[in-house]
Nucleic acid binder design. Structure first.
Length: 647
RNA sequence: GCCAGUGUAGCUCAGUUGGCCAGAGCAGCUGAUUUGUAAUCAGCUGGUCGGGGGUUCGAAUCCCUCCACUGGCUCCA
């Protein structure tokens, strides 16, 4: 007999070798029907796997993230079974679960899969699911596993096997499909009731672009149709928030093939919005002791040779511009830091001058691969809310924390609550891509980790190659409408560039020292920030940012003079307002203004003129009754000053 | 850059297996209407069907190529 401990602390005895399913059945049939996997001593196990020793157990059903992952992993196997039947000879790589759904990478050889095949595969999967085949786990020796996949001719599985230790290898079989897999899996395919294969994509084998490109099929499944329907509705809703769609509808920005891919054109309303964000940051920075500077859009190639950027990115950048006579080479500015280093150098610095915080809304140009361009989130020309803080080594931590505070202040003002602080350290395995001494890196990494700990930030640490080549960084990751993660704010500690530029300050000891440099951008770039903000608030910008705050809607042109009078009062109070002068009915004017997501509408007719008031209607909310213009102005000013968020 | 897909008027989209001068709604313009909380009516303008090349008696429809965009992959100073 073995002792099984349950989550509530209860202990019961069972025969050795009983499965979790057996235990569940001993409790209740209802429980046994519902559960997908079990947590046995902290590991997720198949329900059918025999338990041989005293154990702690809890049952997991759909709702639990780990059970969901298992469900989707099993769904990937189900999809593979359907693919193998439809495309004989297919070779499989891996098929993991995702946050939402799963994928499987495969080599289809000469066969081509299209969107219409996905429908067929979905049907096939449904048929296979209905067979309710169980997922059977089978431990196997390495030699036997190699033999099996050699016979099958699947070199990808053989590659996986080469990294596995004998004695730890298992196969899973459901129906006609057997896969090398460590598991676990749900009990049987019958749990999978609703299936959607979402898209086909290419994916490099092992994520390396030098390798062959495999075919990746993405899908998602649910235990019932209702949840799938809800998921599809969610995706539809998310599409409505897409900044590319809203950017067009709200006339924020556009692109032109003639101007070039990835080069956004800011329309008047977008420029207004961006200007407000820039003002916000400028003010916050002035209050925090930053000094605005301005530097040119190009810089001599030698500047980037000094910084190390040329060696690192030169070949993959927009190529140098040559002066026609002298043949001097200039680069379109891909970052502002080297320019700011030269500003630092423009005069001798004392320790009393530090920290020196140079800030610039600097527009930079980077050659991004064509396939990478994406709306405003990934472009070839963008403006960073950049600044470089030059400080003494002992000031790094304090300055770093102050920057974190500024980022949090910014996010808070805009209602971003769902973000992750991502600490990127050097790649543990490959140090060749970094410049600078081991000692400097240690210092920089330590400064970041300590600052994040001190601020108690929810964070993840990445140790495989996310750091910049000159230093570690802390990025603030925010999700877009459909859950894709984007880096917004970034803070980077850099001991290297000051050395390369031979920056110095005279210390208290009257000797020369090298300052430390902190690169930082709370928004990241105005382009990306506007994109994520647009999706975050679904195009309903708060009063302090919205390009047009008030639209005045006269009921007929008889009331235009009064409307103009109201407009003048609003404009005099720095309120962004317009009049809809068209000879349209009020219903039409309201509809158009609602769709333009302008927060306040003032309806003006006979009644308002007689009362010397305006009727106020709020976007998405409806009639708010009448007010005097002065009352309205006071209300708007309050909303602007408080930076009231749209709920 | 790579894999797959898409590209018809400013916007959203229709255009059967290649076949009369390529269509609709919205927007725009003109006129009428002077309107009370989400679409007033009528008329008109607007496209060498992403660019180039080819096949064909004939191409928006088929082929090649380039460009842009979409979903991924890779990359992201």
């Amino acid at each position: 007999m073995i002792k099984i401990t349950f989550p509530d602390g209860a202990v019961r005895e069972y025969e050795q070798g009983i499965s979790s399913m057996g235990i569940a059945k001993s409790i209740s049939e209802g429980l046994a029907r519902k559960i997908l996997v079990a947590d046995v001593n902290g590991e997720i196990w198949d329900l059918s796997r025999p338990i041989e020793t005293d154990s702690t157990i809890s049952f997991l059903s759909w709702g639990d993230e780990k059970a969901k992952s298992t469900f989707w992993h099993s769904s990937a196997h189900l999809m593979a079974e359907a693919v193998e039947e439809t495309f004989p000879g297919v070779k499989f790589w891996v098929g993991p679960p995702l946050e939402n759904g799963f994928y499987y990478d495969m080599d289809l050889g000469d066969q081509v899969i299209t969107e219409t095949d996905l429908i067929k595969l979905e049907k096939k999967m449904s048929e296979l699911a209905k067979q309710n085949n169980s997922f059977e786990r089978k431990p196997i020796s390495k030699a036997d596993a190699i033999h099996y996949f050699k016979k099958k001719g699947d070199e990808y599985k053989l590659d996986l096997l080469s990294n596995l230790e004998d004695g730890q290898i298992t196969l899973y079989t459901q129906g006609q499909f057997t896969d090398l897999c460590r598991g676990p899996h749900i009990p049987s395919t019958g749990f999978i009731k609703a299936i959607k294969l979402t898209n086909i994509a290419g994916a490099y084998w092992k994520g390396d672009e030098k390798n062959k490109m495999l075919t990746r099929i993405y899908g998602i499944t649910f235990p019932n149709q209702k949840e799938l329907d809800e998921y599809l509705v969610f995706l539809e809703e998310a599409k409505k928030r897409d900044h590319r769609k809203l950017g067009k509808e709200l006339e924020l920005f556009t692109f032109s093939e003639k101007v070039g891919a990835g080069l956004p054109l800011w329309l008047p309303k977008g420029a207004m919005l961006r200007g407000r964000l820039q003002d916000f940051m400028q003010k916050a920075q002035l209050e925090s002791g930053y000094l605005p500077v301005i530097t040119p859009h190009i810089g001599s190639k030698s500047l980037y040779v000094t910084s190390g950027h040329y060696e690192k990115y030169g070949a993959d950048s927009f190529q140098p511009i040559k002066t026609p006579v002298e043949g001097e080479e200039f680069l379109l500015k891909p970052m502002n830091c080297p320019h700011h280093c030269e500003i630092y150098k423009s005069s001798p610095r004392s320790y009393k001058d530090l920290p020196l915080r140079l800030a610039e809304f600097g527009t930079v140009y980077r050659y991004e691969q064509s396939g990478e361009l994406h709306g405003l989130t990934r472009v070839r020309g963008f403006t960073q809310d950049d600044a470089h803080l030059f400080c003494m080594p002992e000031q790094v931590k304090e300055e770093f924390i102050k920057v974190i505070d500024l980022v949090l202040y910014t996010f808070n003002a805009l209602g971003f609550t769902d973000y992750t602080a991502q600490i990127s350290l050097r790649d543990k395995e490959d140090r060749s891509k970094y410049i600078g001494s081991e000692e400097n890196w240690e210092l920089a990494e330590k400064a970041i980790v300590e600052a994040v700990e001190e601020k108690n930030l929810k964070n993840v640490v990445i140790e495989y190659g996310e750091a910049a080549f000159y230093g570690p960084k802390l990025d603030f990751m925010v999700r877009d409408a459909i859950g894709r993660k984007w880096q917004l704010g970034t803070i980077q500690v850099d001991y290297n560039m000051p050395e390369r530029f031979e920056l110095t300050y005279i210390g208290e000891d009257n000797a020369k020292h090298t300052p430390v440099m902190i690169h930082r951008a709370p928004f990241g770039s105005l382009e990306r920030f506007v994109a994520v903000l647009t999706e975050h608030c679904a195009g309903k910008f708060p009063m302090w940012l919205v390009p047009v705050q008030v639209k005045i809607l006269p009921i007929s042109d008889k009331f235009l003079p009064y409307a103009e009078n109201v407009l003048k009062q609003l404009l005099n109070n720095d309120i962004r307002a317009e009049i809809d002068e068209r000879a349209e009915k009020i219903g039409k004017k309201i509809r158009d203004t609602e769709l333009a997501k302008i927060p306040l509408m003032l309806i003006i007719g006979e009644k308002e003129i007689n009362e010397e008031k305006v009727s106020v209607r709020r976007q998405g909310k409806g009639d708010e009754g009448t007010k005097t213009v002065d009352e309205l102005i006071a209300q708007i000013k309050e909303e602007v000053n408080n930076r009231t968020l749209i709920d």
